[in-house]
Design a protein around this nucleic acid. Structure first.
Lengths: 364, 364
DNA sequence: CTGAAAGCGCTTACAG
DNA sequence: CTGAAAGCGCTTACAG
């Protein structure tokens, strides 16, 4: 609690020439500090300043090299032009090819385009317990609003922000009501993949998903099942769950049962995908010659390598960068109180043709 | 000036249930707000609180879910646990394989490890003119201290921060006196590469550097020249500059003059490297069969591809991630006023053996 | 059209 | 050992 803010060994207040404040300008221009504030922030509440006063103040500000103190500005109940980004789970896309990285890029691009700075709240990684999570989330208020990101999010601290009317948006669909988010339309994209597989003639298919109930996983399963049903793929036994460690045995069983295509999903762990591709490699199978393979989501690293496949894995790609950008825009709408902003946004995923879907092999 | 802070259409102050402040705790615990502040921040100035008082305050704080407001904390002249990161040049490592990305990762890792949040100042990209740069740099004061990063940095706004005693450190060596930085030891690493080439028997070599006078480029040239001189490589005509567009003609000339090895450098533009590898490919040369090739710095993307070379380009790698981490630590030392911190740090670069250095081909 | 005042939530001497 | 006061630099009604 009290350790949220590190304690300085000595005051870190600037020791050299002080930076100019509004009161310095006021003195130089012969007006009050409040007047300086008014001309510097523009003419908002209908207040009209004498042109001559404006000019004097502006000139003094220019001469003194004044720039408003963002901290004081924020404390005085205005905005400070900073957006927060809070990432749950392993904080940062450490791996260059981390699947979250493009989101970060999108967020940064749009923030820059909108003239907003970004605060990266790094609290998530350390905060194992709920208490510190609560503390970490609270810090978020230093910004005008905040983006949340990650599959598993502690509900409680967030609800508190929500109750307080603090503006925030999730990147990724959420089930909690009343929360703004920008997500990917996994249902539609996943259904489309199932249809594509059916069109090649597959009827017995498996969907190997991770043992994880994040909304994204739920949506994908729903899409696969709906797509399969509509396209004539058997739905009995279609869905299986894994942690990634037991795929060899499954694969053998599937082959024996006449399964000709497998769909899996990409998550932040990548467990299902890496487990599956490794098992396929160990079994000496080739895709799509022996088995068609599809992936729901963009792989963090080119996953084809493990398969000996030169091309991409078929499936769809998640518009992560665009999600980041859209989330920033939505957040700004919320902060600005734009009337009836769209609070839920589901972005379409582009199909990835890839090279791993083909017709089923002749029956063994 | 006045547009540095976006103006809100309406106040964004939370409308719902207010978050607890110190005064709320004070009321609940039956003490003054100042006392709350003292127990919450710990016992600094020798003040000793009654254990019973401490307990009451702590319990009330716990019950109310109090977390200090970082903005108010900062304004009241203490630290706020935020470190700034200001990137010059094209703001963000947009490309996944952007050469700056590992630095960002290192900064984030160490910041998280130290319990600091990170403010990404995105101002750099937009700010073409000096004025807005000044404004953008000034915003940096919202943080306890700031990291600067990028080859080309406007001196003026920075000097101002320096005069004011604001703590900051550069990532990358600087020539300006009195400024803290964490850089890479390009001189030593570049000399080592020249020596390695000499050891293979090369005597006539070219160093193709970019037409850019950043300290990193200066250091590399110095290292190459010193290494070459010490190892018996001809230094006359050794160094050439390019913008990347005219390499074909040079390459032909070099070959005619009996040049058997070429060294180039990696920068944020990558112009010299991409120009050179393209020219080598067009000339149908192979490395190191026809020509040995070395690179000073880590390529943003695997550059071997353009060469048809499977392996890495020989040279050295810049410890970017570690630079990021070290910079954070140094900055914290500065902020905390640690006595005589090391203000200049030059990290060693690891040699990359690679596959593009070999003995010279038999004379034509 | 401008000034004086209060307040944002905290820290920090300074008195008691 | 604790309280009352001033102040960080700004914004925002509210008076004149």
């Amino acid at each position: 609690m009290s350790d949220t803010v590190p304690r300085p060994s000595k005051p870190s207040r600037p020791t050299g020439r002080a930076k100019p404040r509004q009161s310095d300008i006021a003195r130089a221009a012969g007006v009050s500090q409040a007047t300086v504030s008014l001309v510097l922030r523009g003419t908002e509440s209908g207040v009209v300043l004498a042109a001559e006063t404006r000019r004097r103040v502006l000139r003094a500000a220019e001469e003194l090299g004044y720039v408003p103190d963002p901290v004081a500005t924020r404390l005085a109940a205005a905005r400070n032009g900073m957006l927060g980004l809070y990432t749950f789970s392993t904080t940062f896309p450490t791996d260059v090819a981390h699947s979250y990285y493009p989101v970060l890029v999108g967020v940064e691009e749009e923030a820059a385009a909108q003239g907003q700075d970004l605060i990266l709240f790094t609290g998530a990684s350390r905060a194992a317990d709920t208490t510190s999570h609560a503390a970490a989330v609270r810090r978020v208020r230093a910004a005008d609003g905040c983006l949340f990101f990650g599959r598993h999010v502690p509900d409680d601290p967030i609800r508190r922000l929500s109750d307080d009317g603090f503006p925030f948006v999730y990147i990724g669909r959420r089930d909690e009501p009343g929360i703004s988010y920008v997500g990917a339309d996994y249902v539609a994209a996943s259904a489309e993949v199932a249809v594509r597989i059916a069109e090649q003639g597959h009827r017995r298919v498996r969907y190997l998903r991770e043992n994880d109930d994040a909304p994204a996983s739920t949506d994908r399963e729903r899409g696969v099942v709906e797509g399969a049903r509509g396209a004539g793929i058997e739905t009995a036994g279609l869905v299986e769950r894994t942690d990634g460690g037991d795929v060899d045995a499954r694969l053998a069983r599937w082959r024996d049962a006449g399964v000709t295509a497998v769909i899996t999903e990409e998550t932040d762990t990548g467990a299902a995908l890496s487990g599956l591709t490794a098992a396929i490699a160990r079994a000496g199978l080739s895709c799509p010659g022996d088995l068609s393979l599809a992936l729901l989501g963009t792989p963090a690293a080119p996953a084809g390598a493990a398969l000996g496949t030169a091309g991409e894995i078929s499936g769809f790609s998640v518009p992560m960068r665009e999600m980041g950008r859209a989330a920033v825009r939505l957040l700004l709408d919320l902060i600005e109180g734009t009337p009836t902003p769209r609070r839920h946004l589901l972005l379409a995923c582009a199909p990835v043709p890839g090279t791993t879907i083909g017709p089923p092999p002749p029956a063994r």
